[in-house]
Design a protein around this nucleic acid. Structure first.
Length: 224
DNA sequence: TCATTAAATTGTT
DNA sequence: AACAATTTAATGA
């Protein structure tokens, strides 16, 4: 648990701002609490802000025409998303749902573009973020077809600890096995089996209502 | 603070 | 998908 200002200060992208720029960001950014299970943003909504997770966990997902729920990725404390929509498409391309009670930060579109125009470090950060996400999605497509469920679960968890996207995330992840299943496209029972195998391998510890990550690198390379 | 009950989550079939 | 076991959270004495 941390304050909005502390979260902003800890963000990689805020480190490179001038004190004046940082002050404006703090002044413009609004905070909102979202209970578990509630929508942070709906698919198709106009995108009015860059959204960060101060504390909590959200998932980006979509519902196919056939009604099937597809989860793309999760975002943990310290992560920001929606820059793609702010740069290009005016509307959000996916639903964002809180998996736990979460506190979100909203940086207005106007401030976001002002930072783009005035801060080189901010641009640099965005490049890195976009690149990391691209890599994540490429890996997603790749391992979705090639790897066994154990490895999918492992990499999906490792992705939540990407240091570029989510700096300083605690090792303890509060998430049910059912949700890990959604994130990794495995059934709940297959996910449960995978988690226990990963625990046997010493990569994480399975707990009630969550897991503690012991070896991020090991998870990332699992099954490779 | 402790005991009881309900709800959520996990482990098995 | 359904069921049983386990853990946590909530309630009230």
């Amino acid at each position: 648990m941390q304050t909005l200002a502390a979260m902003l200060r800890a963000s990689l992208w805020a480190q490179g701002l001038t004190p004046a720029q940082f002050d404006r960001v703090v002044a413009d950014t609004k905070e909102r609490a979202v209970p578990a299970g509630a929508y942070v943003a709906h698919k198709g909504d106009p995108v009015e802000a860059w959204i960060g997770v101060i504390d909590g966990l959200v998932k980006m997902s979509s519902v196919s025409p056939a009604g099937k729920l597809v989860t793309f990725t999760g975002v943990t404390s310290g992560g920001w998303f929606g820059e793609g929509s702010l740069l290009k498409d005016p509307r959000r391309k996916y639903d964002v749902i809180a998996l736990r009670d979460s506190r979100m930060a909203y940086l207005p579109r106007k401030t976001f573009h002002w930072l783009l125009d005035n801060s080189i470090p901010f641009n640099r950060f965005l490049l890195t973020q976009l690149n990391e996400r691209l890599g994540q999605f490429i890996a997603l497509v790749e391992y979705d077809r090639m790897l066994e469920p154990d490895a999918r679960v492992a990499r999906c968890l490792a992705a939540l600890f990407n240091p570029h996207l989510y700096p300083g995330t605690l090792r303890r992840l509060q998430i049910s096995q059912e949700e890990i299943g959604h994130l990794s496209a495995t059934s709940r029972q297959r996910c449960n089996e995978a988690l226990r195998r990963l625990e046997d391998a010493g990569l994480l510890r399975v707990e009630y209502g969550g897991v503690t990550i012991l070896d991020v690198e090991g998870l990332r390379n699992f099954g490779a």
